[in-house]
Nucleic acid binder design. Structure first.
Length: 201
DNA sequence: GAGTAGATCCTCT
DNA sequence: GAGGATCTACTCA
């Protein structure tokens, strides 16, 4: 019986953001809000490498009230409202003052599926429940009030449940929805588990 | 099945 | 005042 290991903040303070984005595939993201526990296996991520990355909010060291959490030490949540509708959940990584983050794009639901369906106002469970970053945050009950929370304990944490995704089953490619970033949009900073139905097309 | 438009509100200029 | 790290539904074939 494998022991579930909660990833500590120091894990997220490594310098290899892209490597961590890949490593997070197969880990389990857990939230506990209003006494309701929801969790899912991370099956798709994107790395945002901060000041060098035109697609990141923190490009060129831009520092605003919104991006301030990205400058914190790794292991902090960054939740951002996009298009007035969707919340996107990120994990801040690297050391203090280095604004890098990993966007969680898709999960495979494990626990609390009825709660997720309720939050997403769905009557039947299908693959769209946690496919896409806006859906993930919605299903887990995250909103921008949860930005800046420390990961590693309730209500938000990431567990290693011993789920091994072989490197060969992880694909990488260009990111989605960041075409405005020019050539930076083509960087292979997106990772996903091959063949998983929850991964967006 | 593929392509396109609309929703909707916070944030920065 | 404009635009965004998106999703869904609807149209057309």
């Amino acid at each position: 019986m494998k022991k579930n290991k909660v990833l500590s903040a120091t894990y997220f303070q490594q310098e290899d953001v892209v490597g961590m984005a890949k490593d997070l595939i197969g880990k389990v993201l857990v939230t506990e809000f209003e006494g309701k526990k929801t969790s899912g296996i991370i099956v798709e991520t994107e790395a945002y490498t901060g000041i060098n990355d035109k697609a990141a909010h923190s490009y060129d060291g831009k520092r605003t009230a919104r991006t301030e959490v990205m400058y914190q030490p790794g292991g902090v949540s960054y939740v951002y409202l996009c298009y007035g509708i969707h919340h996107l959940f990120n994990i801040v990584t690297n050391k203090k003052d280095i604004p890098q983050a990993i966007l969680i794009r898709a999960l495979e639901p494990l626990e609390g599926i009825p709660v997720m369906m309720q939050r997403r106002k769905k009557v039947k469970a299908d693959y769209s429940l946690t496919r896409g970053p806006g859906s993930v945050a919605g299903a887990l009950g995250l909103n921008r009030n949860h930005s800046g929370l420390i990961l590693g304990k309730a209500p938000i944490y990431v567990e290693d449940r011993g789920i091994i995704i072989p490197s060969a089953a992880i694909c990488s490619g260009a990111r989605i929805g960041v075409a405005y970033a020019g050539k930076d949009a083509l960087l292979p900073y997106r990772f996903w588990a091959i063949g998983n139905p929850y991964v967006s097309k």
